[in-house]
Design a protein around this nucleic acid. Structure first.
Lengths: 165, 165
DNA sequence: ACACCTCGCTTGCCTCAAGAAAGTGATCTG
DNA sequence: CAGATCACTTTCTTGAGGCAAGCGAGGTGT
């Protein structure tokens, strides 16, 4: 008797998606990964997630094929980085449709501001999650920036298996 | 110290969306609600969810403003129905982007088949979650059918506050 | 050489939710 | 009046979340 139901065998694709994405930490981690975060400490600091949960989630995401663990010799010590796979990068429309929905239907916290999804290829804001509403091209992670005014920086996303974040 | 973090105050809209949608039952319930399911027993039979969890989730969804409880005098007894609000109907792009992702990146179970998203207004399949890839119009729940071949029926969705499901 | 730090985990503890099953009460049916 | 249906509520066990501490490998400072 599992605590959490197993939805991997459901006919409906929404159910199967939730078998992987039904955990909110998973979604936040993938958002961060597409924002160029790669290392354990980066995720931890960004999310305020506990060590134990982060470790479990990263392992699970590698097992699910959304992240790939790569060796990394940054400063001489062998560390490793977690890089989105193609399946992970394809979560972009899901993340953006969540963002669009929340912009419309949840309340901005104090000091918040509208986040714009910028298609860098054409330079304009898109109001669609998967196809640029300005130029009509399909949106790819490495061609997007999320303009977060409260951060005074436009965050360029990075796609699958890119290391120069 | 809550068991589940509170993300309602986050700057990033993805976090705020997950504060409501971070529970997989919530997403499945809203999918069913947009498929025209309205009553406690309908959700229960469709999802195999336990009474206790279903009751809690429905209460929560009403509190979150995704469902509205309406009186219903179907057969003389006073029952009530749970109907999607406008915010609930606006989850359509999220559900569809989940479905599109899973069609591409999860394995079909035995006897499964491709589910097509049909824009009934133009009669064609869309490959975008929020804007019809065939005719370019924004997708609205009550204009969509999900063609589930394993069910031998095309399921017409229903939008907000519609009772004739 | 030795103390100390950083990073990526792991372990232990406590609380609280998930899930299964049974109970409840209001209303209808035979 | 016995039984069924519906929408919950209650009880119970299991296990995940969050916090804090520990740990081990590989730095750095003096």
């Amino acid at each position: 008797m599992p605590l959490r139901s197993d939805w991997s065998e459901l006919m409906c694709p929404v159910g199967r998606a939730l078998d992987v994405l039904g955990d909110p930490w998973v979604v936040l981690l993938m958002r961060d990964a597409l924002h160029g975060r790669r290392r354990f400490e980066e995720f931890k600091e960004s999310l305020g997630i506990s060590d134990a949960v982060l470790s479990r989630r990263l392992t699970g995401l590698v097992a699910s094929g959304l992240l790939e663990q790569q060796p990394f010799e940054g400063d001489g010590r062998a560390r490793h980085v977690y890089v989105p796979t193609a399946a992970g990068a394809d979560l972009l429309p899901i993340l953006q449709s969540l963002a669009i929905w929340a912009e419309k239907h949840t309340e901005l916290p104090d000091g918040g501001a509208h986040m714009a999804l910028i298609h860098e290829t054409c330079g304009r804001e898109t109001t669609s999650a998967d196809t640029c509403s300005a130029c009509g091209e399909p949106l790819r992670a490495e061609e997007m920036s999320w303009d977060k005014p409260w951060k005074a920086e436009r965050v360029r996303l990075s796609g699958a298996t890119t290391l120069e974040a």
